[in-house]
Design a protein around this nucleic acid. Structure first.
Lengths: 380, 380
DNA sequence: GTCACTTCCTTCGATTTCGAAGATAAGCCG
DNA sequence: CGGCTTATCTTCGAAATCGAAGGAAGTGAC
């Protein structure tokens, strides 16, 4: 039941506009796509005949005839997406609009190596498909997030830390053996950024900070994920000022990650005798108003904010969205905001929004869906 | 003799490809534009009839029939471009391909205010047009670089330092009163980046550092100038580490610009009794192997490099090009390179080129030409 | 209820674009 | 020199797209 989307030419643009929720009538499609209204009608007709779009009642009038509302056909297909962490994987199925049909979390040791891990994910996909998708609904794409750098040219993992056996492994190639479909392999922070971007349709330039066990960042430029040469978005290895020096895993001292990541906070808390095992524990402590934890999170936010200052001046985004498990601790965003406001050029911060991420914990999965939809519609 | 380019639809893309030197035969146009070869032939025919393109002999064979070489018609039009500095303005005329017909430098006090300055520039354009352009060759666009921030939405100058009377002045509006043509108003570092980008046709993501009296930076993302909300590219107000503290004009201490700009180097040199009046004097001292000057430039490069480290990790460009008058001092690029190489992630620096800018001292004018051509071809 | 107006969508002839086929003009090779 | 290959460019019928006109289905004023 796997097959590529049978769209060609302008159909792809139209289907994308409906799938992403930007248009839900022929008139809106015409406005947004730039095509003539007559052409839109013809293409929509074809998409309905192909079983990809469906008409559903009518929308609200804007002062004239009511539009006939278009939506994705429920049988148009599903996407299988995963987000791989060190000790677990979140995975699920989405419809083409990116709406989740089912999402679940499973245990999974990334240290078991790529073959075992990827096969386990694919088996999980098969289970979910059998259980949650009506027979006949085709799978249209498969994607996964990786907690490490991915070379966009080869879709291989490069120089990952904490992923033994994965270096240079052709992740996409391995999956392509099992699925003759568009395959997406992408860094997890980038996926999160792509997911967050869906929530800011009117903004073009976003920085999405992932503050969790580590610190990552994804960049949306002109509405599209910026990959650079594959390493773009790293903010964790910037040197920060501090009293005590900490050596980072990268070999240099006093990286942001070594001082401000969830892992760093946990090790400080443990030294002062407070038991924590996961980043979420830190958040719990903060919400329980444990002073040591709150103070640490504030300092962490301040440091992240100081680093962001440089990047905000340089990149001048519309929005800085702060996500990741640590962002659930409210002082984090507050102190990031304070630092950026204080140290940035006024010109760079006027109209800048610094806010908690909107997309929630499944941001990466939704981002995978968004990118896969694009891949499926552009034919690769 | 001013008139907008009479191009429509696909003609614009084709003309741009020829003007920017990326294509010079119908076959190349077909490959690069994605249009069918037959459509290309038809549009080229029209462009020739309109007097915009001309056929000129034949190119070299690639194993088959030789292509009929296309070039811009010499009567296709000219662009008038200026780059405004504090005490002078460089201005000139370019053909549509961006090749200079005439470029000259004039004295001009930016402190005289926008009206006087812009009128003087326009008068200079008129002189140059009368003198260097055959009658009947139309002017197709007017553009100027500004040594301060420009709001891309309104094309006004915002919060400029050292430009009394310019704040919020509608530069484009004023010029539009005199020319009913595409008008370009852009920050000078951005123009420089756009000019440099022409020299890197095969690279998508560039950082172009302008190291002169001040320090600026322009950003090319996916081949296009990134403006952000209008302030993108600022790197001069990043805090750097140093023994002695210097207060920057922005109100905060130890900005990069306060320590590493040409102006900063000059003031240090003057304190040690060495007479310098312009950034070029510093370069001369370095080339004469005056140890104090060389050492200062090295330190400056080191500091710029340390700042770039953060940005290279984050933005992961293909190329960092270093221009501006100070870049003529060879140790500058060398020490920038050394710092970035030492402190960046290996993944971000693999295949990264850090090199002196290719476009030379007229980079900003050429950049203005490039952007104006786009503006003229897209109809605004 | 009627009339003016707006918006949505379709019809239909004109225009643009495509793509397959062929004409043109080379280089290569014996 | 004459075939073979390759690349460039044009011709021509088919398909896609456009835009003007009009029908359909609403809102709001009177």
């Amino acid at each position: 039941m796997n097959q590529r989307l049978p769209v060609q030419g302008a159909q792809g643009d139209l289907l994308r506009l409906v799938a992403t929720g930007r248009a839900e009538s022929r008139a809106e499609l015409a406005r947004l796509s730039g095509l003539a209204a007559s052409s839109v009608s013809l293409r929509v007709e074809e998409l309905i005949d192909a079983g990809l779009l469906a008409e559903e009642g009518s929308g609200t009038s804007r002062g004239g005839r009511r539009p006939r509302r278009l939506r994705l056909s429920s049988g148009a297909g599903v996407l299988a997406v995963a987000d791989l962490g060190s000790h677990h994987v979140r995975l699920g199925l989405l419809d083409l609009s990116g709406a989740p049909l089912v999402i679940e979390e499973r245990g999974c040791e990334i240290a078991d190596g790529p073959q075992a891990t990827l096969d386990a994910i694919a088996d999980a996909f098969d289970e979910l498909l059998a259980e949650h998708v009506p027979p006949g609904t085709p799978l249209r794409g498969v994607g996964t997030g990786i907690p490490g750098p991915v070379d966009p040219a080869t879709l291989r993992v490069v120089n990952p830390s904490r992923m033994p056996g994965w270096n240079d492994f052709p992740v996409a190639g391995h999956l392509a053996n099992r699925y003759d479909l568009p395959i997406l392999v992408e860094n997890d922070a980038n996926l999160m950024a792509a997911g967050e971007a869906r929530w800011w349709p009117e903004r073009e330039n976003l920085m999405v900070v992932k503050a969790g066990t580590g610190i990552g960042c994804g960049l949306i430029v002109n509405g599209h994920l910026h990959r650079g040469r594959g390493a773009a978005g790293d903010i964790s290895h910037v040197r920060v000022l501090s009293d005590s020096s900490i050596l980072c895993a990268c070999g240099l001292p006093d990286c942001l990650e070594a001082h401000a990541s969830g892992a760093a906070l946990m090790s400080v808390l443990r030294e002062s005798g407070i038991e924590v095992t996961r980043t979420a524990d830190v958040v719990t402590l903060v919400n329980d108003a444990v002073p040591e934890a709150t103070s640490l999170v504030r300092t962490s936010g301040r440091r992240i904010g100081e680093v962001l200052t440089v990047l905000v001046n340089f990149f001048n985004p519309d929005v800085v969205a702060v996500g990741g498990s640590l962002s659930a601790a409210e002082p984090l965003v507050t102190s990031i905001r304070a630092a950026v406001w204080e140290l940035c050029l006024p010109l760079a911060t006027r109209d800048l929004e610094i806010v908690p991420a909107r997309a929630g914990r499944d941001a990466a999965l939704l981002g995978a869906g968004a990118l896969l939809l694009d891949a499926a519609l552009t034919g690769r």
